[in-house]
Design a protein around this nucleic acid. Sequence first.
DNA 1: CGGTGGGTTGAGGTATTTCAAGGCTCGTGG
DNA 2: CCACGAGCCTTGAAATACCTCAACCCACCG
Lengths: 223, 223
Amino acid sequence: MFVNLNGNRVHKTRFLGELGNLPQSELVLNEFKYRRGSEIFGESEPAEYVYQVADGAVRSYKLLSDGRRQIGAFHLPGDIFGLENGGVHRFTAEAIVNTTVRLVKRVSLAHVAEQDVTVAHDLLNMTAINLQHAEDHMLLLGRKTSLERVAAFLLEMDRRLTAAGVMALPMCRRDIADYLGLTLETVSRALSVLHDKGILGFLGQTQRQIVLLDRPKLAELDL
Amino acid sequence: MFVNLNGNRVHKTRFLGELGNLPQSELVLNEFKYRRGSEIFGESEPAEYVYQVADGAVRSYKLLSDGRRQIGAFHLPGDIFGLENGGVHRFTAEAIVNTTVRLVKRVSLAHVAEQDVTVAHDLLNMTAINLQHAEDHMLLLGRKTSLERVAAFLLEMDRRLTAAGVMALPMCRRDIADYLGLTLETVSRALSVLHDKGILGFLGQTQRQIVLLDRPKLAELDL
DNA sequence: CGGTGGGTTGAGGTATTTCAAGGCTCGTGG
DNA sequence: CCACGAGCCTTGAAATACCTCAACCCACCG
C-alpha cells in the first residue's frame, strides 16, 4: 500500500460483479480511496479508467461557466461510473464522503469486450441503464414540482440504499438540490412539508437519517 | 404498396447508413408513412421495431398522469429512434409532420449484432450518443434560464437541419416548450427577445422559418 | 470555546406560468 | 369566392412557485 498525491490510499484488489464473469486475470486493478470532497476525474479529461464504488458515495455533475451545477447521478456501493464510449469524461466525479473505488483501465476493458461477447453485451446494458435513468430524470427536471421531485428522490434513494428501514443519506441538501434542479432551501422546505404530513421522520439531530413512514403516500406524490 | 389501418402508406425498401455496412440481405424491411400527429409507438409497448426517419420529423415523449409532457428528443431525417435495450419502449413516438420511416425488426437486428462485431459496436455507439444528448439536456432542464434554453434549442436545430441558412422548424411552439421544460408562451417571448435583439429573423408569416443572424451572440447565451 | 459546515425557517423578490385577448393562415363548405 | 372555424402564434396582465437573502440553530472539531 502507498499514498498518492491527494493523500488517498491505494492498494491492489479485483473488480467485482456486474461485468459478467470476467476473466479476472485480465482485469486486475487498483483499489483507491478518495477523501470526502476530492475529485476522482474531471469533465473533458481523457477517460483512462472505469470505476466501481466499493464503499462510500460519488456525485457526478456538469458545471456552467458561472458555477451553476447539475448533478446527473449519485453513485452508491456497487455502482459503476465513469464508463465512456468516447475517450473523454462528460462529467466531473467527486467523492461525497470518504470513498473506496475499484478501477479498471478502459482500454483493457475494451480489449476484453472484443473477445468476449457477454462483456460487450454488459457494456451495452450498463449504458442503456444509464440512459434510462437520464430519460426519467429529464421528465423530473422538465415537468415535476419541487414536492414531486423530492418525493421521487426519496423513493429512489429508498430503493437503492435503505438498510433496515433507515435511509442514511450521504449527500447534503445542496447536492440533493443540484440533482433535482432546485435550491437547497426548497429541498429543505419540501422535506419539512413531508415531515409535517407524517410521511417521513428524521432520526438523530443530523437530518441525514430519514425514515419513510408512509411509502404509499410518497408514491402518490411521485406520479 | 398498400394502406394500413391508420391510413398510412407502406412499401418495401432498405435500411440506410449509420448501422455500418450491414449485410443488407438480412435487414430488408418496410418503409412506412405516418400522417402528421399519428402515433408510431407508445410508451411501454413491446419494442418490435427500430426506426429511422427517412423524411419528416418525430417527437418522442413521456407523459405524467395529469397530462404534463416532456419531449426527450426530436428525430430528424437520418436519425434512428425506438432503439431499446430492454424489450419495451420508454417513450411514445409521434409524427410531427407527415413522415416516412424505415424500420427493421428488433430481433433481426439483435441477431445480426451477435454475428457482426461492428454492428454490436454501432449499437453501443448509438446508445452512447443518446445518453450524451440526455445528459446535456439534464443540465439544460435543471439549470438554464428560459433564454438560454431557447438559444440552445436554436443552435441544436441549426446544427441538425439547416439547409442554406434558413431553419424550417417542423415543430410548433408547444413542442419546443415541452422539449425545453417551459410553456409555449415563454418560448414565444424568448424568441421575440432574440428577434428584438437582432439575433434572429423570421421568414414568411408562418414563424416556423427562422434565420440566425448572429450565431456568435446566440452561442454566448448558451454557455 | 470559537469557528465552520450543515440545516431550517421567514420575508421579499422574480422568472416563469397562467389566464385572456387578439391576429394571421389555411382548409372546408356553403 | 367568401365566410367561418380551427390551429398556431404573440402579447399583456395577474398569479405563483421557486429563488434569494438573511437570521438563527445545532453539531462537530481543532
